[in-house]
Simulated scan of single mutants.
Amino acid sequence: MASYSFNHAERYAVYTTHGDRCYICTRPIDLASFHVDHVIPVSLLDDSNRLAGVLRDLGRTDDFDLNSFANWLPACPPCNTSKNALVWEPSLLVQKYLQAAGSKAEQARQRAEKVVRNQEIGKVLNTLFRVHEQGGLDDETKAQLAILISDYSKDHAANAEPDVVRLTPTYTAPLFEILSDNGTSRVVRGPYGTGGGPSQNSDPRLDCSACGYSYFNGVRCVICGNMDDD
């Protein structure tokens, strides 16, 4: 039976590009234990005649690559296990799934390539997955994950939870550190340096136009790096 083994760079790219929720049930997922699902099952590669019919019914060309970012979305383990080799019936919903994967395929591919080029991130991903399989993260390992948290902060999907990254089922890390807060103003350290803003912002004009936070160092948002000088 046809199958595909995802590498760490591909898994990380799918997770950061599409967000931290299962595309089927929308429940939260974490980086270490989530599954990458083939929207159109890879098992169809064993039956070329049926595959051709499914691709035609779903409006995909004959050369559509099942083993590509255009067919991969993040899923929780129960949904992926339950779906298994199920072929979705042609519908607006499955078209939505395929459109979501296809529209961000190039973005995901570039992120995977970045991980391959950046050996430090690759090593941290190896550490995360290995230690998770062993059953837990100690404080030393959590400190090693700082580079991964910083990278995720810069590249995570717009629909992902904005304040944290779920690294394992039991460990969720903040995307920025609050250094001080006197009840009126707050100083935070983010991926793009240290900056300040109001503790509770009630004026949307002070928000970063890209991420919605209001923590700036000069005109640069320290959370997403946007240069917002309006």
Score class of each variant (00 low, 15 high):
residue 3 S to T: 15
residue 4 Y to K: 05
residue 5 S to L: 14
residue 7 N to G: 07
residue 10 E to C: 08
residue 12 Y to N: 04
residue 13 A to K: 07
residue 17 T to K: 09
residue 18 H to R: 09
residue 19 G to I: 04
residue 25 C to S: 08
residue 25 C to I: 10
residue 25 C to R: 03
residue 33 S to T: 10
residue 34 F to M: 15
residue 38 H to E: 14
residue 39 V to W: 01
residue 43 S to D: 14
residue 43 S to F: 08
residue 45 L to R: 14
residue 49 N to D: 07
residue 50 R to M: 07
residue 56 R to C: 06
residue 62 D to H: 07
residue 64 F to N: 12
residue 67 N to M: 04
residue 67 N to V: 11
residue 72 W to R: 08
residue 72 W to D: 05
residue 81 T to R: 15
residue 81 T to Q: 15
residue 81 T to C: 11
residue 82 S to K: 06
residue 85 A to H: 12
residue 93 L to H: 02
residue 94 V to D: 09
residue 98 L to A: 06
residue 100 A to V: 07
residue 101 A to T: 01
residue 102 G to A: 13
residue 102 G to N: 07
residue 103 S to F: 01
residue 107 Q to M: 07
residue 108 A to K: 08
residue 109 R to M: 09
residue 111 R to S: 03
residue 114 K to N: 14
residue 115 V to L: 00
residue 121 I to K: 05
residue 126 N to T: 02
residue 128 L to D: 07
residue 128 L to A: 03
residue 135 G to Y: 09
residue 137 L to M: 13
residue 138 D to A: 05
residue 146 A to P: 03
residue 149 I to Y: 04
residue 151 D to W: 02
residue 152 Y to E: 01
residue 155 D to M: 13
residue 156 H to R: 15
residue 165 V to F: 00
residue 165 V to S: 00
residue 165 V to G: 09
residue 166 R to D: 01
residue 172 T to P: 02
residue 175 L to G: 03
residue 176 F to D: 00
residue 176 F to A: 04
residue 179 L to D: 09
residue 180 S to F: 06
residue 181 D to L: 14
residue 182 N to K: 02
residue 182 N to D: 15
residue 187 V to C: 06
residue 187 V to N: 01
residue 191 P to R: 10
residue 192 Y to C: 12
residue 193 G to M: 10
residue 195 G to A: 07
residue 196 G to E: 14
residue 196 G to S: 12
residue 201 N to G: 14
residue 202 S to K: 13
residue 203 D to K: 08
residue 210 A to T: 12
residue 210 A to G: 03
residue 213 Y to L: 05
residue 217 N to C: 14
residue 218 G to S: 11
residue 225 G to A: 11
residue 227 M to Y: 15
residue 228 D to Y: 07
residue 228 D to R: 03
